[in-house]
Design a protein around this nucleic acid. Structure first.
Lengths: 225, 225
DNA sequence: CATTGTGAAGTACTTCACAGCA
DNA sequence: TGCTGTGAAGTACTTCACAATG
């Protein structure tokens, strides 16, 4: 398939074709009227804009189950990320091989970051160690941190932190599940995985069972026993 | 701290206080004018509305590094999720203890789902097995699926699927990192285009927390071929 | 002549600002 | 008096619809 139309892409992505065209237009005019977009060229342009064509060395700190899972995760390499080092504070881990790499001790964190020109760090340590690791990474020159530890990190200005809470996605599913159970079936699933919120209930009424305000009883709450 | 004002909460969360109050108002009127919100009561109401006060039995399928990490993840239990069973297709895994639970064989998937009244399933299998596992979960009665496998699942209407791509967060960091690095240092191939930065470079960078879903926090997920 | 690129129109979300109440 | 709850105003995002065009 050498070319693709905005209509086709939009259908595949589950969005409006005009939106897709408008989004693409921010990258420039890469389409051909009457024809569509050249697939290969489009992929390259988007990849470049998103930074996927660059090589991003990253360090992973905290090689427990999650760290090991991430180190083995195939998706990183294909998006331009190269795991430059695996770091763990446990001496027993040092030298062990994970995902084909030898785990290094946390003592060498600064040296590793510096020598590899790392600007992105991934923290998969226990919550208690996360802030300290974060501080050391930042001091060593890391300016973007992906935090899997269940704690909020504070960082100086200029440093980006993104926190991944693995239970949030579950919570979102549970929220929809709760609604399915409480009301009649509503929206169907969407391939893109975007949780649709629907028009939302506009009924603004207290819903508590132990309401302390309003005299009126309550509504719905959509909460099965 | 028995009560808290919308101003305080908003500052802590890095959002506008009016927005916070308006959001809360959809749950009902739980505040007290001149005082603020009763913390304990507010927490309860929000928890209930989000479904956190319910017990959600879940099954985890695919107990590799990621599955084990998720099984060990402390965040689930505290949000009302109870891992009812760990399931793996590898006979060598059957009976092994992970996170204090005995791994069960995939042959018993249907029975496990049924007996535990599970409606939420987590898939952490390799990509190749995901769709098959998904189909079996759905057939067994699961109506919400959290997919960590790097593949798109198709499900019948009425089933929710959310896909977690662990590399997307890294891509977002890399995207910002690329911008920090310098706007001018790009290969001149297509510098013209459009002023991508836009006229209103409204920087919302509280940095205090993390700004997921912030104004510029999200980047379209693009799947390179 | 099918399809892009884009002003204009439409819709959703956010913030302002203040009446009203504890 | 201090702070909530909310209509109104403002801003951002999405979709329409069509002239431009390879």
């Amino acid at each position: 398939m050498p070319t693709v139309s905005s209509e086709e892409l939009a259908a595949a992505a589950g969005v409006n074709s005009a939106k897709l065209r408008k989004d693409f237009s921010y990258l420039g005019s890469y389409g051909t009227r009457g024809v569509g977009y050249d697939v290969e060229y489009l992929v390259y342009q988007i990849s470049r804009e998103l930074g996927l064509t660059q090589d991003w060395p990253i360090v992973m700190v905290g090689i427990g189950n999650l760290g090991a899972a991430l180190a083995n995760y195939g998706g990183f390499a294909s998006r331009g990320f190269r795991v430059a080092a695996l770091i763990d504070a446990d001496p027993a881990m040092t030298g062990k091989s994970v995902a084909g790499m030898s785990v290094q001790h946390a003592d060498d964190l600064e040296k590793i970051v510096d020598e590899n020109g790392v600007s992105i760090g991934v923290i998969a340590t226990p919550a208690g160690a996360a802030q300290q690791v974060c501080d050391r990474l930042v001091a060593a020159g890391v300016t973007s941190i992906l935090n899997f530890a269940p704690t909020v990190l504070s960082v100086p200005d200029g440093v980006d932190v993104r926190k991944v809470d693995l239970s949030i996605e579950l919570q979102i599913l549970a929220f929809h599940e709760q609604r399915k159970a409480g009301e009649g079936a509503v929206d169907g699933a969407e391939g893109a995985g975007v949780g649709v919120e629907g028009p939302a209930a506009k009924v603004t009424r207290p819903t508590a069972g132990d309401d302390r305000k309003g005299p009126d009883g309550d509504v719905p709450a959509v909460m099965p026993a």
